[in-house]
Simulated assay, not measured.
Amino acid sequence: MISVRQTTGPDGLIGASTGDLRDKFLVQDLFVEGEFRGTYLADDRIVVAGVVPGDHDIEPSGLDVLGTDLLLERRELGVVNLAEPGDVIVDGTPYRLGPLDGLYVGRGSKVSFRGKGARFYLVSATAHETHPTVLIARDSVAPVSIVDELGAGGRTLYRYVWGGGHGSCQLQFGVTVLDLKSVWNTLPPHRHSRRTEVYLYTGLGPDHRVVHLLGEPNNTRHLIVAEEEVVIAPSWSLHMGAGTAPYSFVWAMAGENTDYTDLEPVKISDLR
Score class of each variant (00 low, 15 high):
residue 242 A to Y: 13
residue 182 S to A: 15
residue 161 V to K: 13
residue 228 E to H: 15
residue 199 Y to V: 07
residue 212 H to F: 13
residue 243 G to H: 12
residue 197 E to K: 09
residue 204 L to N: 11
residue 163 G to C: 07
residue 215 G to I: 11
residue 176 T to D: 05
residue 157 L to P: 00
residue 242 A to N: 05
residue 160 Y to P: 00
residue 222 H to L: 13
residue 213 L to C: 02
residue 234 P to Y: 02
residue 197 E to G: 08
residue 231 V to I: 12
residue 174 G to E: 00
residue 176 T to A: 10
residue 237 S to F: 03
residue 175 V to Q: 01
residue 229 E to G: 02
residue 217 P to A: 09
residue 157 L to M: 03
residue 150 L to N: 06
residue 153 G to R: 12
residue 180 L to G: 06
residue 169 C to A: 15
residue 212 H to P: 02
residue 194 R to W: 00
residue 240 M to I: 09
residue 170 Q to K: 15
residue 180 L to S: 13
residue 155 R to T: 01
residue 153 G to D: 11
residue 196 T to K: 10
residue 190 H to A: 05
residue 228 E to M: 06
residue 177 V to M: 09
residue 207 D to E: 15
residue 196 T to G: 07
residue 228 E to T: 09
residue 181 K to R: 09
residue 191 R to G: 05
residue 225 V to M: 06
residue 157 L to R: 14
residue 203 G to A: 12
residue 242 A to Q: 08
residue 233 A to I: 12
residue 237 S to Y: 03
residue 158 Y to V: 02
residue 239 H to E: 00
residue 162 W to I: 03
residue 207 D to C: 04
residue 228 E to N: 15
residue 213 L to M: 12
residue 201 Y to P: 06
residue 209 R to S: 08
residue 238 L to W: 01
residue 237 S to R: 02
residue 189 P to D: 02
residue 241 G to L: 06
residue 163 G to K: 11
residue 189 P to F: 05
residue 200 L to Q: 12
residue 151 G to E: 04
residue 234 P to L: 11
residue 184 W to T: 07
residue 171 L to W: 10
residue 183 V to L: 15
residue 183 V to A: 15
residue 205 G to S: 05
residue 209 R to W: 09
residue 180 L to M: 09
residue 228 E to S: 13
residue 226 A to H: 14
residue 242 A to V: 11
residue 227 E to H: 05
residue 160 Y to M: 15
residue 225 V to A: 02
residue 161 V to P: 07
residue 203 G to P: 04
residue 175 V to W: 00
residue 170 Q to P: 01
residue 191 R to Q: 14
residue 162 W to V: 06
residue 157 L to C: 05
residue 184 W to K: 13
residue 198 V to C: 12
residue 173 F to I: 04
residue 192 H to C: 09
residue 180 L to P: 00
residue 240 M to R: 01
residue 234 P to D: 06
residue 168 S to E: 08
residue 156 T to M: 03
residue 191 R to K: 15
residue 217 P to N: 08
residue 161 V to L: 10
residue 166 H to G: 11
residue 185 N to L: 13
residue 152 A to R: 12
residue 237 S to A: 07
residue 184 W to C: 10
